[in-house]
């Protein structure tokens, strides 16, 4: 419970909560980037440098830009989104609150008996590369195949088939 953890947690929570509650969708994505940067800083604080920088590259760099493009191409940037009925909103928030209560109870009751590692473990890029090339070769290949399939699939799905026929 250091001050830096509390600060980064506050940034992350504020960013993601704003992303889920603002009216204008472009503002939502900007707030989401703030939350994801806070999360990447938390990964760095935990000692997982590679995951932190991957988070910045993939989420802040790619997914947020993709979401902004999707918002602009679907003309939903205007803050005209009609919100659902208030009882609907209330029940959604209630379900999320119950889920959080159950998770918090499980965390507080489950981590008491746990042996906590106080030594900061190391995950240098060198070690990760060696692990990827030795123990995790098959998952790496499967992920490569999945990303290729997703690339082709996203291109095919986003293609305008009516324009091609003309």
């Amino acid at each position: 419970m250091t001050i830096s953890f509390l600060l980064l947690a506050a940034i992350t929570i504020a960013g993601t909560a704003a992303a889920m509650s603002l009216r204008n969708l472009v503002h939502c994505v900007l707030a989401l980037t703030l939350g994801l940067v806070g999360l990447a800083a938390l990964y760095l604080q935990l000692g997982a440098q590679f995951v932190g920088f991957t988070q910045i590259l993939v989420y802040v760099g790619a997914v947020a830009i993709l979401a902004v493009f999707a918002i602009m191409m679907t003309r939903s940037a205007e803050p005209t989104e009609p919100h659902g009925s208030s009882s609907f909103q209330l029940s959604g928030a209630l379900i999320a609150g119950i889920v959080f209560a159950v998770l918090a109870w499980a965390v507080s009751s489950g981590t008491k008996a746990l042996q906590v590692q106080t030594l900061q473990p190391e995950a240098s890029v060198n070690q990760i590369g060696v692990a990827l090339m030795h123990g995790f070769v098959l998952p790496l290949e499967v992920i490569g195949l999945l990303l290729t399939a997703a690339l082709i699939g996203a291109g095919v799905l986003a293609m305008d088939e009516t324009r091609g026929a003309r």
Partner: peptide, 22 residues
């Protein structure tokens, strides 16, 4: 410190769930 991170993760999950539902 670990339960702090786990609680933060639970809160993040709940925010995402609330957004996806509402």
């Amino acid at each position: 410190p670990m339960s702090g991170y786990l609680l933060l993760s639970a809160l993040l999950f709940s925010i995402g769930l609330a957004g996806a539902l509402t």
